[in-house]
Amino acid sequence: MNEIIDAYSTPGTERETCLTATELLKLMDSAGIHRAVVAPEDREIAVNNTSGNDRILRMAGQSSGRLIPACTANPWLGRSACQELRRSAAAGARMLVLAPALQGFCFGDELPAELLAASAELRVPVYVHSGPHSFGSPTQLLLAAAEHPGARFILGHCGSTDYAADMPAVLASAPDNVWFELSLVRPWAAAAYAKAGHRDRLIFGSSAPRNCPAFELRMLDALLPVQDYPDIFGGNFAALLAEVQS
């Protein structure tokens, strides 16, 4: 059986993301997920970048390779953010998470330019949370991706819910350095994206514990069978990670 990789989860310590590593691994086992990205929780993305990155790196380090650490850095920290990315990547982080709404910037403006340049140099993909409405729209990310062709971007959630209407045009016109992560995308929409010819850019993610991975996978599998789309459920993301400098 092909490897299933969950490209986004948030095993956190507060609010709706409370989840221990042990609990996450159990959820993965029950869903048949082999590996999963673990990302810092909201407060860590907004303000406690370093302690959040360290928590995630520790968690991943104790998982026998099943948990893939992501890191974050707030672009408002300027060069310190770049240093934090480099430090985290050197310690094993494989993806940079940006959440414009949490971090207080509009994706597409010049603020994250240095950070994106550093991610490009390290070949670390940049996961960008889409939504809420004014920050992190799919179209903002497309502009930024064209501006930073050396960086590789993953559009988290594909603009769900209210930018879903943009997605056919976004998918059709996305530059080669953009991939699309499917957590919070409803199964019928994900299937439509795949069947419109974009399977090589789509990446499965659950956003556990906001969603239940087993339930989401089961619902997706009914419309987008896992065995028929191994690229979406792991292959595309594995190829992205393979380029990350270690």
Partner: peptide
């Protein structure tokens, strides 16, 4: 009708 599972729970 619309929020994710964790939000529905809250």
């Amino acid at each position: 009708c619309g929020p994710h599972l964790a939000a529905l729970s809250e």
